[in-house]
């Protein structure tokens, strides 16, 4: 008797379901046209490409603009801050360094301190929190 029951459930029931239930396939034209279909789009979670502050504002450092250059100089020793502190890209950092050397040579800018009238200029970066750690 038990055997018969299982047989019935296995062979007869599914066939009846198959007959009654309407099955939709993915190729059905009605469904493909509905608004729920996937849309081709760019990755919305893609991060914005980071740029250094001089590239973002499209500034080319110049030796005559010693006020801008003095912002990349330590107020205590006049030392030029490195790339890990300024957060500039390599090309701009090289340019800033060479222009500072020029400006110091032309007596626009001091070597061993920062011009005291520029001490309260806004800070472009925090020397205490470099991108990469340094040995000082």
């Amino acid at each position: 008797m038990a055997l018969l029951k299982t047989l019935v459930s296995r062979y007869i029931l599914p066939t009846t379901y198959r007959a009654t239930a309407i099955r939709y396939s993915s190729t059905d034209p009605k469904l493909a046209e509905s608004d729920d279909s996937p849309v081709e789009m760019e990755n919305p979670y893609k991060k914005e490409v980071r740029q250094c502050i001089l590239c973002k504002l499209n500034i080319t450092p110049d030796y005559k603009n010693h006020r801008l250059l003095s912002q990349f100089q330590s107020p205590y020793t006049g030392r030029i801050y490195g790339r890990h502190i300024t957060g500039l890209c390599k090309a701009k950092q090289d340019l800033v360094e060479s222009e500072i050397r020029k400006a110091q040579n032309c007596a626009y800018m001091p070597y061993y301190y920062k011009d005291k009238s520029f001490l309260k200029d806004p800070k472009l970066f925090d020397p205490e929190n470099p991108i990469r750690s340094h040995r000082f």
């Binding site: 080319t60 890209c89 090309a91 991108i131």
Partner: peptide, 14 residues
């Protein structure tokens, strides 16, 4: 000075 026409490479450097 010539015009500076390099794109920013900060993203690759970080």
């Amino acid at each position: 000075q010539e015009a500076f026409d390099k794109t920013c490479t900060l993203e690759e450097e970080l």
